[in-house]
Design a binder for these strands. Structure first.
Lengths: 195, 195
DNA sequence: AGGAGCATGTAAGCTGTTACATGATTTC
DNA sequence: GAAATCATGTAACAGCTTACATGCTCCT
């Protein structure tokens, strides 16, 4: 999804600012859909306003620049749902960790150990985000809808299940990968891959 | 990883052409690390050659343009492993499916059904790639190394495990998501997220 | 006869990032 | 006193995709 779609998706659940859109996309939930920086979000919001898919109101603050709070319009909602109804692009998984793992022998135990720790840390953070940040994927309380909340809950449970499986496998098999990095051969290559 | 790194990664396991690098990155294994089109691969290979990280030999063919077969140099190997030794960027997962799932109620059962089927199909394809395309992540037979093959095997087993967990969850819980899309409420929202 | 696959390459254009500019407030 | 957070925005640049150009072979 592009930055415009990302903004609409986040505005769908409630009014917010460009600043907070960036936070949701790079740190919070919604980091599973797209990531964007200020340099792309602010221009995108201006374009969306010109196309009347969002509106904007100024909220002055003391000492800080006025917050520009955006709201999605009906046309915006419609455009967003229409885009979502198209067959989605295949999900994307890009793993720096897997690439490092493939070259375990050449990179050596120090690099592999660090990569394993980092990946486990990242997975635990993601799991936290899934289990603790409840309701972040559902709209704010003013327009709470139990069905939309349920869909968010379903999605988080799904994510949590996959992440948990990933963590478990990593913990159980990290010794094997470390052995390879150390120049030992712990895996029987003759057998079929047993899932 | 950028296109140059992708080319080096693929050339690391054996000589090949720009055409085949694109195939490996968009269809085969290595699609887990980066994807690239001809428009970026060919210029990248030229730049790599200018930097003497790869060499190139022409293999004439009848009726077709001569294949430009690239080989990685020692400097290329060194540059690649050095890049890999840096702390890797966090793994990225971008899911069009999860986004659709969150808006299940608003998109309706038809869209959700199609998205579920598509996602399951994609996951099964990925699993196939993991289990059937054995040895694709290891170098060709001329410079076979059991430790490098073992690392590839470890990586594929890891991938297969996670994909299997994902498929199992989707199959078990698709009825729940369909219920939400149909306007029913099958999930107890009062309880904590149970993994 | 038409389309897919093989094989390379260029040019225009889109999208997004990085770095900068501004400036007050809060935290260490 | 320095750094982080809040809050917006612009300009230069990097990187990549899309579309095109070329042309032969194999399959249906």
């Amino acid at each position: 999804m592009n930055v415009k779609g990302l903004c609409l998706a986040i505005l769908f659940r409630g009014d917010t600012t460009g600043y907070d859109i960036r936070k949701a996309s790079s740190e919070g939930d919604y980091s599973y859909f797209a990531e964007a920086s200020f340099g792309s979000i602010y221009p995108a919001l201006n374009r969306l306003e010109a196309e009347e898919l969002v509106t904007c109101r100024l909220e002055p603050q003391e000492g800080k620049p006025a917050r520009k709070v955006y709201s999605i319009t009906d046309a915006g909602r419609q455009a967003f749902l229409e885009e979502l109804s198209q067959p989605p692009k295949p999900d994307v998984f890009r793993s720096g960790f897997l690439l490092v793992a493939i070259y375990a022998k050449l990179l050596g135990p120090k690099v592999i150990e660090k990569a394993l720790d980092l990946r486990l840390e990242q997975l635990n953070e993601e799991l936290n985000c899934m289990t603790e940040c409840k309701d972040k994927c559902s709209p704010d309380e003013t327009n709470y809808d139990p069905l939309i909340a349920a869909a968010g809950e379903w999605t988080r449970r799904y994510g949590a299940h996959v992440i948990t499986a990933s963590i478990a496998y990593l913990k159980e098999n990290r010794a094997q990968l470390m052995a390879i990095a150390n120049g030992e051969l712990p895996i029987d290559l003759s057998g079929k891959l047993a899932v």
